[in-house]
Amino acid sequence: MKNLKGLVVIATLSFTSLSFAGDALNAEEMLIDAEEANAAAAAIGFEWRDTSKFISEARIALADGKQEEAYQLAQRGYDQAVLAKKQGELMMENWEKYIPM
């Protein structure tokens, strides 16, 4: 039972990291994806506080030749931006359901 759960956890973990990586093969591409995703979140007014910080840190790491670090940072920015846009789209459709009574 425990083993089975462990397997499921591992399977989902590897699955999510795969799906989040998108099609980006390297840090440059990840960075571009992150920038585009964040611009889309900002365009609807839902950008998160730290996303652009991750993106600029990724840019610096890339300039320093630290590919792996740049990739990780860009991915964090990308993940946040995707979630922010999803949040915004949900709110724009449904905000009236969130009015406290």
């Binding site: 506080r49 730290d50 724009m92």
Partner: peptide, 11 residues
Amino acid sequence: EFFYSKRGQMN
């Protein structure tokens, strides 16, 4: 709309 919309990482 702004006032009632959840936003930010803390939603």
